[in-house]
Amino acid sequence: MFKETIDFIRGLYNHKEFVPLHEPFFNGNEKAYLADCIDSTFVSSVGKYVDSFEQSMVDFTGAKYAIATVNGTAALHISLLLSGVGREDEVITQPLTFVATCNAVSYIGAHPLFIDVDLDTLSLSPEKLEEFLVNYTEQQDGLCKNKVSGRTIKALVPMHTFGHPAKLKELSELASTHNITLIEDAAESLGSYYKNKHTGLFGAMGTLSFNGNKTITTGGGGMIITNDEGIARRAKYLTTTAKVPHIWEFYHDEVGYNYRLPNLNAALGCAQMELLPKILENKRSTARKYQEFFKKMDEIDFIAEPAECESNYWLNAIVLENRETRDSFLEATNRNGIMTRPIWKLMNRLPMYRNTWSGDLENSEWLEQRVVNIPSSVR
């Protein structure tokens, strides 16, 4: 079984000696735009490419506003602040995620609460969320209060795992009913749609990431997308060190953050956005080939896009029979030059979040022992 899979992946990627998990794809105007940016001398956070990159994201996603940031974690941090999350507040999220989701909560001095995921989406479960909200929260003066901790629950942050959209209709309805702000961690889901609407646009804000291993990259970088003009204006202000606009004066009227994306990185992003439709088409083609291949194997299941969704298939993933089989697969593939990796260790197992409240995490624990990411680069 392992040898057959290794041979298939090698063939898929033209029999390369080493097949990475996900490498960036540069096949357009990247060098030309970078050179133009350098020639302009505007390489920091002011320049035409920042504006162009933000506009290209508006055009692609359908958001009314896009605010570029230095990375996806910064975008999430600012989004949480804009949603009113403060010290000692609580934020509901999922344990099956990249650590940046929880770190952004911790930067504020707030506390994450972990709700289980669904097996079909790998993202936060509306059913488990509703169970928690009914049993452990109450409404006080228009705020959602945790009856156990006494803290206010300010935000709900589902993460679209590997680019597969969460059940956003149900999650947004629950957030609205319980007076909680929905913020989508869409770091992995650029080019993914739920009910024909781009991820990141179902809550007050959505955040994107353009790290070197993402669908498109700016080297490092992130984005806040929103349909709220007030949020967009304040996001740009806070990420630009809270500087009051003036031709020559430097005046800052509150604590801000140096989170704006440099023009140099945005130049790379502009070229990548031109390639995005081609990248997404190629990635869906790769996913179809994987899906057909793994149909023949009873021991391995390929994770396909959920119902009513169009996933970007950022990272393709498979589910093996148990942890022992998973570890054997990881050993065999990596030893033979095929880069694979397990899913993240659950957040509640990490030392800094070990004492965080968690509900029944049966699905998350089951997935943690079985899921493996396989090569997903553009071919």
Rank of each mutant, 00 (worst) to 15 (best):
Q369R: 02
E308T: 13
A307K: 09
W314I: 00
G269Q: 01
C144R: 15
K147G: 00
S149Y: 03
T93V: 04
S40V: 01
M1W: 00
S285P: 00
K345L: 05
M339T: 14
I231W: 05
I303M: 04
T340W: 02
N146P: 01
L315Y: 05
E131T: 14
S328V: 13
D36S: 10
M1K: 13
P20K: 04
G256Y: 03
F302V: 03
P277G: 07
I338Y: 08
Q139C: 13
Y194D: 15
V50S: 06
P165R: 02
F294T: 06
H160K: 12
M205D: 03
N211D: 10
G11E: 09
N334D: 11
I224T: 08
P165L: 01
T241L: 10
R341Y: 03
E173T: 01
D301Q: 08
A74F: 04
L350M: 14
T226N: 08
V157L: 06
A271I: 09
N227D: 06
Y33R: 15
Y251D: 15
K48P: 12
E170D: 12
K145F: 11
F162E: 13
R379G: 11
G142L: 04
E281Y: 00
N258K: 15
T121Q: 02
C102S: 06
T152A: 06
G206I: 13
R354D: 00
N146L: 02
L124K: 01
H111P: 10
E30S: 10
T5D: 07
G109H: 09
A186W: 02
F25W: 15
L82M: 07
L143Q: 09
N373V: 07
A232H: 07
W366K: 15
L315N: 14
M273L: 11
A63P: 06
L143N: 08
R10I: 02
N355D: 14
M297V: 09
E305G: 12
S125E: 10
A75Y: 00
A266H: 10
L190G: 03
N227W: 03
